Simulated scan of single mutants.
Amino acid sequence: MPFKRALTYSLVINLFFLALCLLFGDLKFGAIDDYFMAARLTGALGTDYNPHLIFVNAIYGYALLPLYHLFPAIGWYYIGEMFSVFLSFTVIGFILLQRCGEHWGAILAALFTALFASDFYLVVQFTQCASILSAAGMLLFAYGIISQDCHAPNGARNDVWGNIQALAPFILGVALMLWGSVMRWQAFLMGLPFFCLGLLFILRECWSAKWHVIAGLAILFAGAFSMHAFDQKIYQSPAYEAFNKFQSPRVILGDKNNYNKNAVYEDAEELGLSGKDFHLLTEWIFYDTKVLQLIV
Rank of each mutant, 00 (worst) to 15 (best):
M1T: 12
F3T: 05
L7P: 03
T8H: 14
S10V: 08
F16E: 09
L18D: 09
L18E: 08
L22Q: 14
L23A: 15
F24I: 14
D26A: 10
I32N: 10
D34F: 05
G43K: 09
Y49W: 08
P51N: 09
H52L: 07
L53E: 02
V56W: 02
A58C: 11
I59Q: 12
I59F: 15
I59T: 14
L64P: 06
L65K: 12
F71M: 12
P72L: 09
G80A: 02
S84I: 04
L87P: 02
F89Y: 02
T90A: 08
L97G: 06
C100M: 14
A109M: 03
T113F: 07
A117C: 13
V123W: 15
V123Q: 15
T127R: 09
Q128C: 10
A130F: 04
F141I: 02
S147V: 10
S147L: 06
D149I: 02
D149P: 00
N158G: 04
V160W: 04
W161V: 11
I164C: 07
I164L: 09
Q165A: 12
L167V: 01
A175G: 01
M177R: 00
M183W: 08
M183P: 00
M183G: 03
M183I: 03
Q186A: 15
L197H: 00
L200N: 05
I202N: 04
W207P: 00
G216H: 07
A218D: 02
I219Y: 00
F225P: 07
S226Y: 05
D231W: 01
Q236E: 13
A242W: 02
F243T: 14
N244E: 14
K245E: 13
K245D: 11
G254T: 08
K256G: 12
N257Y: 03
N258D: 14
Y259W: 13
N260W: 04
Y265S: 06
A268V: 00
S274M: 03
D277W: 10
H279G: 10
L281C: 06
F286G: 11
Y287N: 07
D288S: 08
L294N: 07
I295E: 13
